[in-house]
Design a protein around this nucleic acid. Structure first.
Lengths: 147, 147
DNA sequence: GAATAACCATAAGAACCCTGATGGAGATAA
DNA sequence: TTATCTCCATCAGGGTTCTTATGGTTATTC
C-alpha cells in the first residue's frame, strides 16, 4: 500500500519516533525476561532502587525511578501484597513510610536482576566506549532542549 | 543523602535509563503543548496517521503508531466520541472499519500539528545533520539488538 | 511563637498499554 | 470443497501513568 511510504516519509525525520521505538523495544524485552518472576518493569525498578537505598520513603523512591509518587504507591502496594516489600511508619517522621525489601524480595530481586542486567549488557555490547558516550551525550542534549 | 550517589553510580551506565528519560521528556513536552487542544499524545499520533492515510483500518493504524490494535481501539473510541473521527464498515471487507478524520478532526489536527512539529523541531535544531544521523543510527542499533 | 514553604501519603478519575482469548471474514492451497 | 492461514475487531483483566486535590508533618523564616 502506498500509505506505508507516505507515512514513513512523513515521520522518519522526527527524532521522537526513534526514541519511542527504542524505549518500546527496551520495555518489551525487559518485560519478557522479568515475566517468569512475575515482575513488571516498574516493579523491578522499584525493588532495584530499594536494594540500593533500604528504608527510603515512597516519594524519594518515586524520584529515583522517575515516576510520580502516586504511581510509586500503586507499584509498592502490589509488591507489598506479594510480600516482597514491607512498609512501616518512620520513627522520626510520622508521615513517612519506611520501605524495605523483605528477604523474599531480596531473593527474587537477585534472580531477576541478573536477567535485567543481561538485557542492558546486550545494548552496551553493541557499542564501543566512544559510541556509548556519544549516545549518552546526544540523548542528554535532547532532554535538555525539552525540559 | 548518600543514597543519591549510590543509585546514580549504579544506574548511570545503563543505557536504558537514558532512553527512558529522553522518552519521558518527549512525552511530557508533547502532552503539554497538546493539552490546550484536549488531545493526548496517542490521540494526536492516531489523527496524524489518519491524515496521511484516510480510510485505513484500525489494525493498520495501530501498526503505524506502534501500538496494539486493542490500544488503538480505545484511542479511536475517544476520538469518535468527540466527533473528531468517524468509522464505517467497509464495503469491500465486512470485518473492516474504515476510519477517517471528520472536518472538525482535520481542523483540530491542523492546529495541534503545528505545536507538535515545533517540539520535534526543537530537538532537530539542537543537532547538526551529522549528529542527527548518528543519533538515529545508534538508536536503531540499540533496537536491533533488542528485537 | 506563628506563618510559610517543603515534604509526605493518598484518593479520585481518566488514559494508556499490554497479554490472552474469542469470533468472524477473506484468501489460498490441498 | 474443505482446511488452513491471515487479517480484523473486540471483550476481559491487569498494570502503569498522569492530573488534580486533600490533609498532615517538618523545617525554616520572620
Amino acid at each position: 500500500m502506498e500509505a506505508d511510504e507516505r507515512i514513513e516519509r512523513a515521520t522518519a525525520w522526527r527524532p521522537g519516533s526513534l526514541i519511542k521505538r527504542a524505549e518500546q523495544a527496551l520495555i518489551a524485552e525487559k518485560s519478557r525476561v522479568l515475566r517468569p518472576f512475575g515482575l513488571t518493569v516498574p516493579q523491578y525498578a522499584a525493588m532495584y532502587a530499594l536494594s540500593l537505598a533500604p528504608g527510603i520513603s515512597g516519594a524519594r523512591l518515586a524520584r529515583y525511578c522517575a515516576v510520580t509518587p502516586q504511581s510509586m504507591t500503586t507499584v509498592l502496594k502490589a509488591l507489598e501484597g506479594r510480600g516482597l516489600v514491607e512498609r512501616h511508619p518512620s520513627e522520626d517522621h510520622a508521615q513517612v513510610l519506611v520501605t524495605r525489601l523483605t528477604s523474599e524480595g531480596e531473593a527474587l530481586l537477585g534472580e531477576a536482576d541478573a536477567e535485567a542486567v543481561a538485557v542492558e549488557r546486550r545494548i552496551v555490547g553493541a557499542f564501543d566506549a566512544d559510541e556509548l558516550e556519544t549516545l549518552r551525550a546526544l540523548l542528554q542534549r535532547a532532554v535538555d532542549v525539552l525540559i
